[in-house]
């Protein structure tokens, strides 16, 4: 499963997003994730008029993230055609939200995004990471939070390793493997993909269920069909 993040800001770029979404879909991306990364730090909810437009053209699953703070927010996004919703900062602010959403929509709709940073030989969760000026430590250990969100009904975890993010030196295999060891729901690796080998290594060495990348697909540095061919050739179960 290869996922693609697209930063979404406002109506003006809907055209671009639709075009990009269709392109990735045609190229064989297995799932798309749309992040409005500043929704939570700016204390506004994701602008949702585009969700329906995306749902009309895509025939692969997609997930919407950004400022979904209530069951009503989630319901709106799902009713507009999203397959899953992903919550990060709002779950840290109100962990009971995870349970409420899982009960209402089923765990399979509820993805928890975790931004994690390695410090002092441990992993810590960060909040409001969309805006560097507002990012704060969430006062939680990553492994504790991974356990808690599962108990509360999360159906999937996207782990974004902040140390690796945008550096293109590969996923944080050690951290992914540590989380995998206690994660019984699907685990998606995020942060650090720069080469096709990085995808292979994270599947082989950390046994993740999917790998998400943004930069390398945006820039077309790694063409999706080529990546999937490479992974399949290296015995990673890949849809083609």
């Amino acid at each position: 499963m290869v996922v693609k993040g697209v930063q979404f800001r406002n109506h003006r770029v809907v055209g671009d997003i639709l075009e990009l979404a269709e392109r990735y879909c045609a190229e064989g991306a297995d799932e798309l994730v749309f992040y409005d990364i500043t929704a939570s730090p700016d204390d506004r909810s994701v602008d949702r008029s585009w969700v329906t437009q995306i749902a009309r053209v895509l025939d692969i699953p997609f997930c919407v993230a950004g400022g979904i703070r209530s069951v009503a927010d989630a319901e709106d996004v799902l009713n507009k055609g999203a397959d899953k919703i992903s919550i990060n900062s709002p779950a840290l602010a109100k962990p009971a939200l995870i349970t409420e959403m899982a009960k209402r929509f089923g765990s399979q709709c509820v993805v928890i995004g975790i931004d994690s940073r390695e410090e002092h030989d441990n992993y810590f969760v960060y909040q409001y990471t969309g805006d560097p000026g507002k990012t704060i430590a969430a006062q939680r250990l990553t492994l504790d939070w991974v356990s808690e969100v599962q108990q509360r009904g999360a159906g999937e975890i996207v782990l974004n390793c902040m140390n690796q993010d945008g550096v293109r030196k590969g996923y944080d295999i050690e951290q992914m493997a540590a989380v995998r060891a206690i994660c019984n729901v699907p685990l998606i690796a995020s942060g650090g993909a720069g080469a096709m080998q990085h995808f292979l290594h994270v599947f082989e060495q950390a046994n993740v269920d999917g790998a998400l990348a943004a930069s390398v697909f945006h820039s077309a540095e790694i063409p999706i069909p080529e990546l999937k061919h490479y992974l399949a050739k290296n015995q990673v179960d890949t849809r083609r």
Partner: peptide
């Protein structure tokens, strides 16, 4: 059944 190599929910593409 939840087993180490088989997360539940089953989410994703299956042959």
């Amino acid at each position: 059944p939840s087993a180490p190599a088989y997360p539940v929910p089953n989410m994703g593409w299956c042959a």
